[in-house]
Design a protein around this nucleic acid. Sequence first.
DNA 1: AGTACCACCTGACGGC
DNA 2: TGCCGTCAGGTGGTAC
Length: 266
Amino acid sequence: MPELPDVAVYKQYLDSTALHQEIENLSIEDDRVLDGVSEDKLRDALVGHSFASTDRHGKNLLVKLDTGQRLRLHFGMTGSLKYYARDDRKPEYTPVVFRFTNDYALAYICKRLLGRVSLTESPEAFVFEEGLGPDAYDLDEAQFIELLNNRRGAIKSALMSQELIAGIGNVYSDEILYQAGVHPKTPVTSLNRDSLSFLYHTMREVFETAINGRAEPENFPETYLTRSREEGQPCPRCGGTIQKIEVSGRSGYMCPGCQPELTEDD
DNA sequence: AGTACCACCTGACGGC
DNA sequence: TGCCGTCAGGTGGTAC
């Protein structure tokens, strides 16, 4: 489920494999992932050019071309990248392939076709067009507190709101709240400055840990919820039972012992 | 402003 | 075996 840490790892992967090579051609096998750009336009923008560098904003990877334009890759919930020798078999579920003149290719893999590929002029333009909030890993503490201070509703919904803060999805919102000992349904208005500050630092720690673990749960510490994010599993911290709950129509997982629900007196 | 619900997508999985 | 409903979850649209 590509959220901020996953996309950060994809960025490292693309940076270490696919930069500075001429794109010979594109293979577009399913245009349902193209968002506001035609096959022809995408080809015109890419063929004969190369990837110069990358940036990430939230769950989006923005690949800068040598022309200055940006290729935007969004991964939905089943997207990833694979760099492979063109003689090797193309990965399954690959709607778009970028083929380079060095006989390698970069596959944009997207099993459920919920990802999006598009073109944009700059990261700033893209963020504006999409109405995204600032990147969650780019925020400083004061900005984080300021953003949440003007927010009502449940903390899990706020963390997952891409218009407010870009990059956190269902899995990592659960992890951040679990590590911080905050119940997902906690009203944002009931969190004081110190709680928000702690939440901010917890969020950063989770990102750092996840990215260091290459966003693969089996590499995470044993105290991480993501490793046992399933109803009925034992809580890795207190041995209690992980519970499945619904918050704003999304299913979340939490430990009732470690993340007590606030009462009105709190 | 925030929530509820539906749709988009397809593979995995449990039930019968 | 194989059909079927449900779930996974990021996003977008619409209604309330």
